[in-house]
Simulated scan of single mutants.
Amino acid sequence: MYSFSSNSYEELMTCHRDWMVICLELINFIDFSIFEGHRGEYAQNKAVADGKSELRWPLSKHNQYPSMAIDMGPYFAELKNTDWNDLSAFAAFAGAVLVTAKRLYIAGDITHQVIWGGDWDSDGRTLDHKFRDYPHFELTEENVWNL
């Protein structure tokens, strides 16, 4: 069983309850890091300037409190870090997040569905988007899973 670093846990505590439920379930099976939950005005506008977001403050779901968005990705013990160049690892991780979230939603344990920044329209294709944000996930009230 894996556990969160203090940084990951602190970021998780800035997020919506549904993210807490999803992440606490997922950490039982996959080692991962939470990079960012809530983002203030300076951090949001810096993310835009750095090309990591397209939405200026206060339009990102990261800007709500608690945060409806979370940035996270796989952690590799042998690297003692995330491999930011391993997009396949991010996609595999996203699959685990989405399956976990869907199972918890169907069970009634969470109230929102989840969108991944690598597949904004949830159609299973990643190359049909000009902006791909592989660590990014959002809670949504939309019926993206066609349930």
Rank of each mutant, 00 (worst) to 15 (best):
T126P: 02
R17S: 10
I70V: 13
F76A: 05
G73K: 04
Y65V: 05
F90A: 02
W57L: 04
G117V: 06
W116N: 13
N45E: 04
P66N: 01
H16P: 01
L104W: 02
L26H: 04
Y65R: 13
E25G: 01
L104C: 03
N28R: 14
T126H: 13
K102G: 01
N146Q: 10
Y105M: 02
S60D: 07
Q113L: 05
H129D: 15
Y2L: 03
D123A: 11
D86S: 06
K52C: 01
K130A: 13
F29R: 15
I27W: 04
E138A: 13
A47G: 02
A77H: 11
E141Y: 04
W120M: 03
K102L: 04
F76S: 07
E36V: 09
P74C: 09
L24I: 01
A43S: 14
T140K: 12
K130W: 06
E25F: 00
A77Q: 11
E142A: 14
H112E: 01
I115Y: 05
A94L: 06
N45M: 00
K61I: 01
P74L: 09
F32I: 10
G117T: 07
L98S: 02
D133W: 12
G124I: 06
D128W: 11
A96Y: 05
D71T: 00
D128R: 05
Y2S: 10
A101M: 08
D133Q: 11
N85G: 14
K52P: 00
D123T: 08
H136P: 10
D18G: 06
S122H: 12
S60C: 04
Y65F: 13
E11Q: 15
Y75S: 03
A107R: 12
I115K: 11
A91C: 09
Y42E: 15
L98T: 00
D123F: 11
A89T: 02
P74A: 08
H16K: 02
G117P: 11
I70Q: 09
F93M: 06
A77E: 13
L147Y: 15
K80W: 03
S8H: 04
R56M: 09
I110E: 05
L98M: 13
H38M: 06
D121V: 15
T111H: 11
E36A: 14
A77V: 05
S53W: 03
P74T: 09
G95V: 05
A47P: 02
E54V: 14
A92C: 10
N7S: 15
W57R: 01
A107V: 00
E41A: 13
D123W: 06
D121N: 15
D31P: 09
V144Q: 12
E11W: 07
A101D: 08
E25M: 02
E36L: 09
S3Q: 15
I70R: 11
E25D: 13
D133H: 12
D133I: 03
W116E: 10
E11P: 00
S67E: 03
G73P: 04
F4M: 10
H62R: 07
W84R: 07
R56D: 11
D31C: 02
E11N: 10
F137P: 07
F32P: 12
E36N: 12
E78P: 03
V114Y: 04
I70G: 06
L79P: 00
